[in-house]
Write a protein that binds this DNA or RNA. Sequence first.
DNA 1: TTGTAAGCGTTATCAC
DNA 2: GTGATAACGCTTACAA
Lengths: 342, 342
Amino acid sequence: MQKQPTIRDVAQAAGVSVAVVSRVLNPGSGPVAAATRSRVNDVMKTLGYHPRTAARELKFGPPTTLGLLLADVSNPFFARLADQVVQEAHARGIQVLLMTTQEDDQLESERLATLIERRVSGIIATPTGNNLAIWKQLQDLGTEVVFVDRSIPSLPEVDVVSIDNFESARSATALLAAHGHRRIGIISGPAASTTGRDRIAGYRQALETAGLEQDELLIRHAAFRGPAGGDAASALLNIEEPPTALVVANTAQVTEVLRRLSHAGIDIPGTLSVIVFDDSPWTELMTPALTIVRQPIDLLARHSVQLALSNTQGKRSGKPNVIRVAAELVERSSVARLQFSK
Amino acid sequence: MQKQPTIRDVAQAAGVSVAVVSRVLNPGSGPVAAATRSRVNDVMKTLGYHPRTAARELKFGPPTTLGLLLADVSNPFFARLADQVVQEAHARGIQVLLMTTQEDDQLESERLATLIERRVSGIIATPTGNNLAIWKQLQDLGTEVVFVDRSIPSLPEVDVVSIDNFESARSATALLAAHGHRRIGIISGPAASTTGRDRIAGYRQALETAGLEQDELLIRHAAFRGPAGGDAASALLNIEEPPTALVVANTAQVTEVLRRLSHAGIDIPGTLSVIVFDDSPWTELMTPALTIVRQPIDLLARHSVQLALSNTQGKRSGKPNVIRVAAELVERSSVARLQFSK
DNA sequence: TTGTAAGCGTTATCAC
DNA sequence: GTGATAACGCTTACAA
């Protein structure tokens, strides 16, 4: 275990001053004789010298690191988002600090604290919905904050990137109605989440357009984590007049909901037609192949990174960026056509 | 956008010296009068002061950041590994820099370079298999390197955490043999990868024990990425005497392989019995529910973090840590019993 | 108990 | 073209 060479070691070994080495390191920062440059480069190589990021960051606030604060990464949706964000960031030469909240306020605030201490230039997050003060502070500090997938209604000044939740739920519901379903249930995110609200709203709109009765019993909110999603599914199946079709709009819990349906021995789409918000590869492998609302994760990631990296200068003046990308309804085999029902 | 307060601002506002502020920041580093401490704390709060990590790191090499270098995170196996690693690290107050290689040597070397520049204290990685010199350099630099899931044979001095690949493949194959299968195929990782090698070896051992003929045609290596996995599956189905059972031991590509089988209209387990290395929740949701080799991802993560954080001091002397955790064979419904075949 | 001052490794501003 | 030298924000002997 050798001690790391510093810029001074390089300078000495190359017989020049540190200033020259620094200039070699940052081309364009000043003139260096070609001969000197190559000599210095050689020395750096043989010494195995690598400039220390921490020291560099000390001088200027570093647009070299981005915080990615997700609920968790074991969920395929977030995982793919993380993957794309990291790729997108790497393509721009910036690094990603990955943190998870487990949907826990307390953890979220701790993570945000360390993100502040690191002076990251931007944060892409799926907020739990609390810690309002910290989010505000972050923005005041000049950190570019971008909410992805969800947002916080009481923080309208934060940039948001998500799919068009209203329209996605509307079209999914409309498809079911068009297939003759009259009792359509929906399981969505927490009522407090914008995601959940918007999806429910789209669902209602579709019912109204189709002239279907709205039954509050058919509308279920489920927390992003825990057994809530599964419970909601079970509850829906046990009401007096159970639905013949279901929209699983809680992206974070599709697997959980499907597991319950499967264990309950529900025949899909025979007994229950299903459309889920998720485009994991395995949705296609199931029997029947699931009809899904596909979220363009690559676009979500690209736009998030773009916003998080957009120069914060002079932007605070204008309105926040709200980017809604279109989701795609992919029809497969989990929706049955009801011919002469009732 | 306010300018960030420094330790000096705090000191001034509190009417003390920076040394005192530093001491309240790092309890135990020196005595501070209780009154002073609380006054300083108040000032820090009102000023919204947060010590800057970069400046701290400049003094001592920081055991505060860990590099996690994975092939990609869109793969559920790696995603869950990432999730666990991050949680495990957070529990110890350390942060994770997530990077991906896309199984590309070149990208890997770039990522490693930035990891060196950041002076991370440890790196947990699924190596591509190249960049030998850099991995060596990392170790010489005193960075704790831990390979997880795979390793590099020509770098025996690096710590490794993985499942017992030999035994896992052996028992999976043995199960198939016990069910009367005589033609058992296997799709595993690249021949160059330790993972692939070990799994194939376990497979051979099981065949030998069962007194079954070994047919090289039944053994397929597939790259971790790209269509290779699917191609291998297709190829296996088209040989003269196709297998009646298949072990999909290339964890990175199960989904791809299953998609091919599904598209080919193969009846599982009627025509083909299947055991896969993967414990994603959806393997249980499929019809039939898949018999799997479950990798204890939490253990892999825990041990990796532990090793990556273990004080590097005086360790270089001893042998590298090689931790093999047991995988679990979970029987479900994708394996058929062949009664009077042939 | 508190303050002063010297680093940590880089970059930037000057002179030479 | 090159070389001193002062920051950057923090920790820590060593004094007071």
